[in-house]
Amino acid sequence: MDILETDAFYRRQRRNMSCSLFVHLVPFFLATAAYFYVWTPASVGSTMAAGVKSAPALLLAAVVLIWNGPQSLLGVAGGLLCSALGDFCLVWPEQLFIHGMAAFAAAHLLYSLTFLSTRYSSDSSSKWPRVFYPVLFLTGGSFYFYLYPYLQKAPDSELLVPGVGLYILLITLMGSLAVRTRSLITVLGSLVFMVSDVTLAVQVFKAAVIENGTVVVMVTYYLSQLLIAVGDVKTVESNDDFSKWKRA
Results as ranks from 00 to 15, higher is better:
residue 80 L to Q: 14
residue 112 S to Y: 04
residue 2 D to Q: 04
residue 113 L to E: 04
residue 89 C to F: 15
residue 143 F to A: 10
residue 213 G to Q: 12
residue 20 S to A: 15
residue 151 L to S: 11
residue 188 L to V: 10
residue 158 E to W: 11
residue 11 R to H: 10
residue 201 A to W: 01
residue 239 N to D: 12
residue 127 K to R: 13
residue 33 A to K: 06
residue 162 P to T: 00
residue 173 L to M: 07
residue 227 L to D: 01
residue 247 R to M: 10
residue 118 T to F: 05
residue 230 V to K: 03
residue 194 M to V: 10
residue 80 L to Y: 07
residue 57 A to L: 04
residue 227 L to I: 09
residue 118 T to V: 10
residue 157 S to R: 06
residue 161 V to A: 02
residue 174 M to N: 13
residue 80 L to C: 14
residue 80 L to W: 12
residue 224 S to M: 03
residue 225 Q to D: 04
residue 246 K to M: 14
residue 172 T to M: 08
residue 245 W to K: 14
residue 79 G to M: 07
residue 63 V to P: 03
residue 120 Y to K: 00
residue 78 G to A: 03
residue 165 G to V: 01
residue 140 G to M: 10
residue 38 V to W: 10
residue 173 L to N: 06
residue 78 G to W: 08
residue 111 Y to G: 05
residue 32 T to H: 01
residue 235 T to P: 00
residue 31 A to N: 11
residue 193 F to G: 02
residue 188 L to F: 11
residue 89 C to P: 01
residue 242 F to R: 13
residue 67 W to T: 05
residue 173 L to E: 07
residue 139 T to G: 09
residue 78 G to S: 04
residue 1 M to N: 08
residue 203 Q to R: 15
residue 143 F to V: 03
residue 68 N to S: 15
residue 170 L to D: 00
residue 177 L to C: 04
residue 82 C to I: 12
residue 62 A to W: 02
residue 241 D to C: 09
residue 204 V to I: 14
residue 117 S to V: 07
residue 27 P to D: 06
residue 45 G to T: 06
residue 239 N to W: 03
residue 3 I to G: 01
residue 84 A to T: 06
residue 58 L to Q: 00
residue 34 A to W: 13
residue 133 Y to A: 09
residue 147 L to G: 10
residue 171 I to N: 02
residue 27 P to C: 07
residue 239 N to R: 14
residue 154 A to W: 02
residue 127 K to A: 14
residue 126 S to A: 15
residue 71 Q to M: 13
residue 57 A to E: 02
residue 109 L to P: 01
residue 115 F to N: 05
residue 203 Q to D: 07
residue 3 I to T: 07
residue 201 A to G: 08
residue 238 S to N: 03
residue 108 H to Q: 13
residue 90 L to M: 12
residue 245 W to E: 10
residue 10 Y to V: 11
residue 180 R to I: 08
residue 180 R to N: 11
residue 58 L to A: 02
residue 104 F to K: 06
residue 142 S to T: 06
